[in-house]
Write a protein that binds this DNA or RNA. Structure first.
Lengths: 219, 219
DNA sequence: TGTACATCAGTGAACGCGCGTTCACTGATGTAC
DNA sequence: TGTACATCAGTGAACGCGCGTTCACTGATGTAC
């Protein structure tokens, strides 16, 4: 049993350590100059390795990028889950949490909600995480009265996440509708702010965001 | 007078012709694979020229890109102005016009409202065009009653566009406030749709967009 | 109308760069007896 | 405890590619007398 219990041999531990340092450097590159600046050779240089050495850890640049995107999604899901667990699971709390998370690393936000990364096609993996985010939001909208709205949402089949848990299609149609507006409206303010498109104007992005959020939270 | 009247010598006309073909090819590249795919050598290849030949027409890749961004802004301004002139200058009409324009060339939309292009710093030129767009929207919001809102907008100095016309800071505070929501909310739906982030969900982007637009148009 | 000259579009070769990726290898770390 | 072997991290050189950009040039188009 001693063997099965500690699956992590020293070598395996080292391996994971290097893998995560590679990812850290990768994030530095992305944060500094966007996704297109992600370069295996550049990372190797930063780490004092030869470029070829990285191929022990990632089979290709695409694999690394895919994993980064996956991590970005998981970070957001985790952050929203934590906020919910801390009693900030209402729309107002989630809205503020989302903004903090986005400002913390704008490029990471765009990796999740920005224009598609050229060449990258999302795994089913990521679709489940995206659906999970919507579920969290929909839960926060649970107390909205269920008045059948305009037919914006049409029912569809639920997804399954990695552990076989059913995901997506939670809550009433009205709750889903509100969650959707939550996402699009806040994304509108946030993405324009992060892109610098509100900078030229005489408006305070934080106040604008809060105003939109208040309106949503009032049902 | 015969000389001053026709400024366009045949050579000059040819020159403009080639310049605009270069831009056309550039748009093809951007449409197909995003801004990062823009390549002078690639354009030359498409046109059957040598790469060096393009330097007769643009001094650098950056100059070409700058001009494309400028053109994108001008296209949007022109489209909105035309809609206004055709009696579709209300919020509902402008909203639909905006969506058509965006769907017509998503990459062009992202050049205007997307994440900043790496390496590119916007000219003052473009700031004036951006302000002009806001003016058009604010005009469409002129009939909203002027109830001083939350202090989202703080007054600032107006800009000047190329011809010295004053631009920006039109309309009442309430009108500006509404125009701002128009921009952020519709951008929220539109950019998520264009990025494919609504594709996995069971919602119709067109209906969602229309629903948000209707809400705005109702003041 | 013809000749001499200037302008300018476009070429082809080259420079230096950085990229992703492969491959044969060295040397250290771990494992089995 | 020591020896023989397997595993695996990392190296260095190389491949082929495409990029932006420069430069000396050829040849056609336009201009001036």
């Amino acid at each position: 049993m001693g063997e099965a219990a500690s699956t992590t041999t020293p070598r395996e531990r080292y391996r994971q350590q290097v893998r995560s340092e590679i990812k850290e450097r990768a994030w530095e590159q992305i944060t500094a100059a966007g996704t297109s600046a992600l370069s295996l050779n550049g990372i190797a240089r930063l780490m004092g390795l030869s470029g070829a050495g990285l191929y022990r850890y990632f089979t290709s640049r695409d694999e690394l990028l895919t994993e980064l995107i996956h991590d970005a999604y998981q970070s957001l899901v985790g952050t929203l889950r934590t906020a919910t667990a801390q009693g900030k699971g209402d729309l107002s709390g989630l809205g503020q949490t989302l903004r903090m998370w986005a400002l913390d690393d704008p490029q990471r936000y765009f990796l999740v909600y920005g224009p598609p990364v050229p060449g990258y096609r999302g795994a089913a993996d990521v679709a489940a995480l995206a659906a999970e985010i919507m579920d969290i939001l929909t839960d926060a909208c649970a107390d909205v009265p269920d008045v059948p709205d305009a037919p914006v949402i049409t029912p569809g089949a639920p997804l399954e996440d990695g552990s076989g848990r059913s995901v997506g299609r939670a809550g009433t149609a009205s709750a889903q509708r509100l969650a959707l507006s939550f996402r699009t409206r806040l994304h509108g303010v946030l993405s324009l702010e992060l892109s610098g498109h509100l900078a030229g104007m005489e408006c305070d992005p934080a106040l604008l965001y809060q105003a939109e959020l208040d309106l949503l939270a009032a049902h």
